[in-house]
Design a protein around this nucleic acid. Structure first.
Lengths: 227, 227
DNA sequence: GTAGTACCGTAACGTACGGTACGGCATTCG
DNA sequence: CGAATGCCGTACCGTACGTTACGGTACTAC
């Protein structure tokens, strides 16, 4: 039977514990084959006993790592006041670009792979935590913007969730599954920006209130053939 | 050093071997925690020795399973002759519905999880095989339809790959990653059909040649709030 | 000083699982 | 009929890894 650990007591990780979690992230980002407790202890220059004392077990360590990574990635909220067509487009593009950058980072890929692996057996909630800090956190941060834009008559939709999911699909497309399955897919800064622009244009074409040109997002944006 | 196996000789699996592969699919669909060779042997009523003789190693068994599953899922090609707006819409919807049904099946989820797990270490090509038989196979089957539709002036785009990826994103949205991460997401027959319709409408709004109404896919389709 | 605490390094334990070996049975071939 | 082949069931081996235990060291409290 497991006993309460430091982390579970509700306090955030101590500086030393953050170092350990960063070591885990480092190992993951390096594309290590399998993340073992021994490897973590060695990299973090701590004893395995300490790992188990602090995090309970392997699952606890991974959970803490996911939360730690999420706390680093969270971007600032977007200002919903003074919303016009231009600032809406900018905010959406920023959201899209940030999201693409996150999901294509080595760390996120590795973390998602671990979570997917553990989702098989129901005795772990890692997948749920990754979802809560990833897909759903993004949704909760974007939805206020979408609804403010609707309030301002910039876009029109009935269901916020559906509108968000459409945006999500237009931004991510096949990127995440390809990366998770090991496809070598390099997203340069410029490609991320371009994809964010294209997705935003397409989204505004679909949901824009009336005055958006019907063909926007089809031409002009994709002048460059993708590789 | 590994020696050539039956399967690698280029022949398809024998009936008995197909039984074994079906046993693997059964186990995966049952949501077993970890797929072990012993469990496969037991379920298939064969010896582990036979497994290794036929498939070489665990990787070979999984690879054969992926191919076997892909061979069952492959749907018929779509008739590109006599293409009009209505038949294009029907074909796209059929594609979308079929794809959604596949990726939300327990078997596909489990297989993708295994492939994602193995993608971490480069010494396995499972991820590549899943991609080739999934995402890329779909692309190669859909692209001729898209290009025929462009030829018929029904839709307009510059780059086929980009158009396909947009369609892919509109159809799949967040479904696959949520399922892989363990989200309980039940797609009923009706929801699959509805999503296929919505995605197709949105795609035609973005790429339709001129006459598509600018607001299609925004209203009318999503009368039901998603759960 | 001495006791207590926190931690590091490392060794050890238990188990799970990939892979192999072997005995037995059923079928086929000569 | 005997020999060979193919395959099942099972026992076995080696290793990797999660987890625990223990000795040693620095630092704090009193």
């Amino acid at each position: 039977m497991r006993v309460a650990t430091d982390i579970e007591a509700g306090n955030g990780p101590s500086p030393r514990q953050e170092e350990v979690l960063d070591a885990v992230l480092d190992l993951l980002a390096e594309g290590i084959d399998a993340l073992t407790m021994s490897a973590v202890a060695q990299r973090a220059s701590c004893s395995k006993e300490t790992l188990y004392k602090w995090f309970g077990d392997r699952e606890g360590l991974l959970t803490a790592t996911v939360r730690w990574q999420a706390s680093k990635v969270r971007a600032g909220s977007y200002d919903a006041a003074r919303l016009d067509a231009s600032s809406l487009q900018g905010s959406l593009e920023a959201f899209a670009a940030n999201w693409l950058k996150v999901i294509s980072s080595r760390t996120s890929i590795a973390l998602n792979r671990v979570a997917v692996s553990h989702a098989q057996s129901g005795r772990s909630n890692l997948g749920g935590i990754v979802l809560a800090n990833g897909r759903f956190a993004i949704g909760e941060r974007l939805k206020p913007l979408l609804e403010a834009a609707r309030e301002a008559r910039l876009i029109a939709f009935e269901d916020t969730e559906t509108a968000f999911r459409t945006f999500f699909g237009l931004v991510g497309r096949d990127v995440q599954i390809r990366l998770l399955l090991g496809d070598k897919l390099r997203l340069s800064e410029a490609e991320v920006a371009g994809d964010a622009r294209r997705a935003t244009q397409q989204f505004l074409t679909l949901y824009g209130a009336g005055k958006a040109p019907a063909t926007a997002g089809r031409m002009k944006i994709n002048h460059r053939k993708e590789t």
